[in-house]
Nucleic acid binder design. Structure first.
Lengths: 125, 125
DNA sequence: TATTGACCTAGAGTTAACTTCAAGTTCTAT
DNA sequence: ATAGAACTTGAAGTTAACTCTAGGTCAATA
């Protein structure tokens, strides 16, 4: 079992954030010591890994909370969870190719500015 | 010259958003009709194109405002603007490859769930 | 035993980027 | 001339995801 501090180190999240995620039902069943301190298990850290993974790919916390609720419901939601992940992957891929397009536009703008710059510098001679 | 409504159509932004951008000094010098209505010129729309381009690639509005301030300062800031755009491009590329890594992790998780699912379904037979 | 540092809670505050509201003004078409 | 649509303003409200505060409790050490 790990303290909240250790869980922070392993996940890269702040302690405030871990408590916030608990309140938001991303990982609501973390066990406690006699004194009321949080104790993270290996499964908790595993779950946090998945949570970060989804968060890092832009899934809103409310959707992650729903996903984790399904997880707690057990194996009979495995199919649904697979579907959700597949759909999420497609969404992320879509966003990435859109970003690619946007980046190309930036490149065009930069080319334009570069040409303007060299004209300007020619004039300055 | 175009009304704010026409500017909305050409940029895909809401009228409220255009006014907000004006207040935030992204494009603060839009001219006005006698009655005080905004009149967007072709250069304004061109500038809005760049603004959207930067926004769509994740540049914060405050940075865009700074960029547009440089633009208003004229050609002697062309070099600086080119540098800024180049740096921005690198930042965006970095984010995209990071996202690629994150997406791979999602793929791994999905594979894991898929394997668990087929085991589960075998048991169910 | 006393101190110190890590942890607890509920609730308030922050940030970015809008979005809505209320109330008034201007433009356009009959 | 007037109805109604489109536009104006400043200010308040919204959302997501934190982040911080205040006032306490718990645990390890001297």
């Amino acid at each position: 079992m790990y303290t909240i501090h250790e869980a922070c180190e392993k996940t890269g999240l702040a302690a405030h954030t871990l408590r916030y995620y608990e309140k938001e039902r991303l990982l609501p069943n973390v066990s406690r010591s006699r004194g009321g301190f949080r104790q993270y298990s290996d499964e908790d850290l595993e779950a946090l890994g998945l949570i970060c993974c989804l968060k890092n790919t832009g899934m809103p916390l409310s959707d992650i909370a729903r996903f984790m609720e399904l997880t707690r419901e057990g194996d009979q939601t495995l199919r649904e969870r697979c579907e959700l992940l597949k759909r999420h992957k497609e969404v992320v891929k879509g966003r990435m190719s859109e970003m690619e397009r946007h980046l190309e536009k930036v490149t065009h703008k930069l080319d334009h500015f570069s040409r303007m710059l060299s004209e300007y510098e020619k004039e300055m001679e």
